[in-house]
Computed example of a mutant assay.
Amino acid sequence: MAAVPPDDLARARTALHERAPLVQCLTNSVVQTITANALLAVGAAPAMVDNEQESAAFAAVASAVLVNVGTLDEAKARAMALAARSAHDRGTPWVLDPVAVGGLEFRTRVARDLLAHRPAVVRGNASEVLGLAGAGAGGRGVDAVDGVEDAVAAARDLAGRTGGAVAVSGAVDVVVDATRTVRVPGGDVLLTRTTGAGCSLGALAAAYAAVADDPLTAAVAAHLHVAVAAERAAQRTQRPGTFATAWVDELDAVDAGALREAAERLA
């Protein structure tokens, strides 16, 4: 039996559209607009509530929470810790995106401390996952210098600590939990030239985690959704500016049937 049955992915897509989960995003200032637009495109409701005065209270009513440490300072770190703790206390799924973790001490410490609140999904590139797990020195800023397969053991170690899923992005994405491994091929290289595509993927993982009981299913659905939309967008344009717009359009167009069909490629 497949680690994630195609029908489960299709049901998650249908549920996301029908339930319109409220996703609180504590994310970096560079990507807020595209992240919000990506969430709206798939049927979720974004809320960029990221201050320490409100983050815990909002996490208590949100359907899911995204914590992305991309543009970090002390105040944002406190807000993130409060939101993650609030989400964990209420059983609300939350996603950690450890942007550039491993190479910089402050964000690495903040992200590792956040693991205590047991994110449902951790999503990053290979160098970020290795850095978060304490098994690598990080990448070149937000760019990975390690291969996806090199990070699989570290990803599984993190999944064992959190009880959730860990997704490693690359040419072929790898998503693991304590016992299962799924590889998600596809997408398009233009995603790497679109500011905020990876951060939006983390937000979609949060949206799917709000409607799927299984974190691995949520992470795989988000990665597959993004990949299919990118492939469709790349058929329309090969320029990064128009690709970004086309990709958001295609995020809206990918339905349950498309995810079920695309699940045949999973390994």
Rank of each mutant, 00 (worst) to 15 (best):
N37E: 14
A3P: 08
A167H: 02
D252E: 14
G138Q: 07
T194V: 00
V166R: 00
F106G: 03
D177W: 03
V31Y: 01
T162W: 06
V142S: 10
G134I: 03
L82P: 02
N28I: 05
G160W: 02
D146M: 06
R118Q: 14
N28Y: 09
D73E: 12
A197K: 00
E74R: 13
A75G: 04
H88C: 14
A197M: 00
P185E: 11
A84V: 08
A111C: 10
G136Y: 00
A253C: 11
G241N: 10
A116G: 14
L26C: 00
V152N: 03
L39W: 02
R239D: 13
S29Q: 12
H223L: 15
E54D: 14
L259F: 09
L224V: 10
A62R: 02
T192A: 14
A258N: 09
A38C: 05
D252Y: 10
L82C: 10
A222D: 00
L266C: 10
A197L: 02
A222V: 06
A83T: 03
A263Y: 08
S200F: 04
D146C: 13
E261S: 15
R193N: 01
D213T: 15
R265T: 15
V172T: 15
R161Y: 11
A38M: 04
D73K: 10
V4M: 13
T71S: 12
A258H: 12
D97S: 08
V172Y: 06
E128H: 04
S86A: 15
C25E: 03
A100Y: 03
G124Q: 06
I34S: 02
L40V: 11
R112D: 10
A36N: 08
A2N: 13
G163D: 10
V49S: 09
V95F: 00
V101K: 02
V211N: 10
A267M: 06
S169L: 01
W94T: 00
E74G: 05
V65K: 00
A253W: 03
L251I: 07
V23Q: 02
A38F: 04
D50K: 04
A222F: 10
V30G: 01
A205H: 03
G196Q: 02
R140P: 02
A171H: 12
A57I: 09
V175S: 03
G196H: 03
T71H: 06
H117W: 14
E54T: 07
L40H: 07
L158C: 11
L259H: 06
D8Q: 14
R161F: 11
A47K: 09
A207L: 05
A263T: 07
A87G: 11
L72G: 05
V175H: 05
G102S: 06
R239Q: 13
L82W: 05
E261F: 11
R193I: 04
A206R: 01
A10D: 11
G141D: 05
G186C: 11
A79M: 07
M80S: 04
A15E: 11
S63W: 09
N51Q: 11
N51W: 04
S127E: 08
D50M: 01
A36L: 08
A44F: 03
A151T: 08
V121Q: 06
A75E: 13
E261Q: 14
V189R: 15
R236T: 13
A209H: 04
P119M: 04
E52T: 11
E54C: 07
G163V: 08
L158I: 09
S29A: 15
R156Q: 13
M1C: 12
D50V: 02
